[in-house]
């Protein structure tokens, strides 16, 4: 199996203090889109209890998790295959890992997004993508631009030009309290 990574090299992360793993068939969420939000809210409520401002933390964690889950469902190439969500509180960061099977067209979109993220001026990237009405990727861009998240994507090529995508979001816990 061929594997590669988009985004910056993985950072060494502290040991997990709290963690949660969920697997849900993408089809369940295609049938009832609100289930994406239900999964996001559950993960957020579970982790938010670790923080001093749980209500604020829950709002941010739900927003971030929901973007990842919605993307995984929307771009899932096999709706029967589970979406895997792993959430870990690791000291000064929260790590979210969300996996799905994707078609080649989605990988091309991710490559373009990571090239834009590498440019650094994310406000300009946001403006350009909105004005050009670029489809896809806006949610991930917002996580990096507005929430200081570091994004990575692990790609594992499987058969029939399909790729297992694991999106990694490393979110600083300082984003989980109201300044």
């Amino acid at each position: 199996m061929t594997t590669r990574r988009l985004g910056p090299p993985p950072l060494p992360l502290p040991t997990a203090l709290t963690s949660l793993v969920l697997e849900v068939p993408a089809l369940d969420m295609v049938v009832q889109w609100r289930r994406c939000g239900v999964v996001a809210d559950y993960v957020a409520e579970y982790l938010a209890l670790s923080f001093e401002q749980p209500s604020y933390a829950q709002s941010v964690l739900s927003t971030v998790t929901n973007e990842l889950v919605e993307n995984a469902v929307r771009f899932s190439a096999d709706k029967a295959r589970p979406i895997r969500v792993e959430a870990l509180h690791r000291g000064e960061v929260v790590e979210l890992l969300v996996s799905n099977l994707a078609a080649e067209s989605h990988i091309l979109g991710l490559e373009a997004l990571f090239a834009d993220l590498a440019r650094g001026d994310l406000t300009s990237v946001f403006r350009e993508r909105v004005e050009a009405r670029t489809r896809g990727g806006l949610g991930l861009l917002i996580l990096a631009k507005d929430y200081g998240a570091v994004l990575g994507a692990m790609l594992a090529l499987e058969q029939e030009a399909r790729t297992q995508v694991t999106m990694q979001v490393v979110l600083p816990t300082k984003e989980l309290s109201n300044p």
Partner: peptide, 16 residues
């Protein structure tokens, strides 16, 4: 101001 997505999104919209 106290709702994170709202505060952050306003800055994004003003950039447009």
């Amino acid at each position: 101001r106290s709702v994170p997505w709202q505060l952050k999104t306003m800055a994004s919209l003003q950039s447009l």
